[in-house]
Simulated scan of single mutants.
Amino acid sequence: MTMSLGIILILCLYVIIGVLDQISIQIGPYTPLFAATFTGWVMGDLQTGLMIGATLQLMTLGVATYGGATIPDFLSGAIMGTAYAIISGKGAEYGIGVAVPIGLLLTQLDILGRMCNTFFQHKADKFAEVGDYRGVERCNVLGIIPWTMSRILPVFIGLVFGEKVVSLINEMIPAWIMTGLKASGAILPAMGIAILMRYLPLKKYWPYFIIGFVLLAFGAEFFSVLGVALVGLALAAMYVMNQQHKVPVTSTNNVVDEYDDEEVEIDE
C-alpha cells in the first residue's frame, strides 16, 4: 500500500492544526489519540488508529511542558506510527513500537523549533519598547512558523518515503528486535494504566476501583467499558449527593469538637 500525495498533505495540514491547538486552547487535536485515529480514518483502517492512539494517550497522561520543558512529540509519532503500521500490515503493536522512538527522537527538533522561536520573541521585545503593539502581535504569529515546521518536516519526509522507510527498517532490523518492539507495544497499555493509577486517589476511593475491576473482569459478557463508566458516574453522583447532606458536628459552646474532621449525616 502506498500513500497518495493528497493523504500526505491532509495529514500535514492536520499537524498544523494539532500544533496550533497545542499552543493555544488544547481541545484535543494535538493528542496522540486524535492524531492516530484521524490517520487511521484517512488511510482506511480506523481500528488500528484507535488502538495506537489510545495506547499512546495512556503514556502521555500527566505529561506537559511545565517550565518550557521538552516532551516526546507523540503527535508526529502517532501519525507516522499509525501510517507505518497500516502500510506494513504488521498491526498496532508494530505501530506503537515505532511511534515511541519517533516521538523521543523528535524532541531534538522541538528544541530546535523553540530556539528559532526566540528570534521572533526578541524582535517582539524591541517592538514592545517602542510601543508598537502590532509588531508584537506579528512576531507572536510568526513565532508559530518554526514550531509547526519542526513537526511538519519530519512527518512529510517520513510519509513521502514511508514505504521505502518501512522496507528499509524491515531489512535492517533483526527479527529479535522486531519481536521486542511488538512485546513492548503490548506492555505499554499496562504501563499507562499504572501511571494513571499513580495519580488517582485510590487509597481513599479503593472500593469504587474494586467495583469497576470486578464488573469488567468477571462480567465482561454483560458490561462494556461504557457500561462500567456509567456505573461509576452513578456512584460518583450518589457520593456527591450524600456529601451535600452532611454538616460538621460542633459543641454547644461553639467550640469545634475534637472530631470535627468527621462528618455526621443529619436526618431532615
Rank of each mutant, 00 (worst) to 15 (best):
M3V: 12
M3D: 07
L9H: 08
L9T: 11
I10A: 14
I10L: 15
G18A: 05
G18M: 06
D21L: 09
Q22I: 02
I25R: 07
I25W: 02
I25N: 07
Q26N: 12
T39G: 10
W41Y: 09
Q47F: 13
Q47K: 14
L56Y: 03
L56C: 06
G62L: 08
T65C: 08
G68W: 01
A69Q: 02
T70Q: 10
I71V: 15
M80A: 11
G81A: 11
A83Q: 00
A85P: 00
A85D: 05
I86V: 07
I87F: 01
A92I: 05
G95K: 05
I102S: 03
D110M: 10
D110P: 00
I111C: 01
R114M: 14
M115R: 12
C116N: 13
F120L: 07
F120A: 07
H122I: 13
K123I: 08
K126V: 14
A128N: 12
E129C: 05
V130T: 14
V130L: 09
D132W: 09
V136R: 04
E137A: 04
N140C: 12
W147M: 14
T148M: 13
R151C: 15
L153C: 02
P154A: 07
G158T: 06
S167T: 10
S167V: 01
M172I: 15
I173L: 11
W176V: 11
M178Q: 10
T179W: 04
G185H: 04
I187N: 06
L196S: 11
K203V: 06
P207L: 07
L216G: 00
A217M: 05
E221A: 08
S224F: 03
V225A: 04
V228F: 03
L230G: 04
L230Y: 04
V231R: 01
V231F: 03
L235Q: 09
M238N: 09
Y239I: 05
Q243V: 08
Q244S: 15
Q244A: 12
V247F: 09
V249N: 11
S251K: 12
S251E: 15
E263M: 12
V264T: 15
V264W: 10
V264E: 14
I266Q: 10
I266C: 03
D267Q: 08
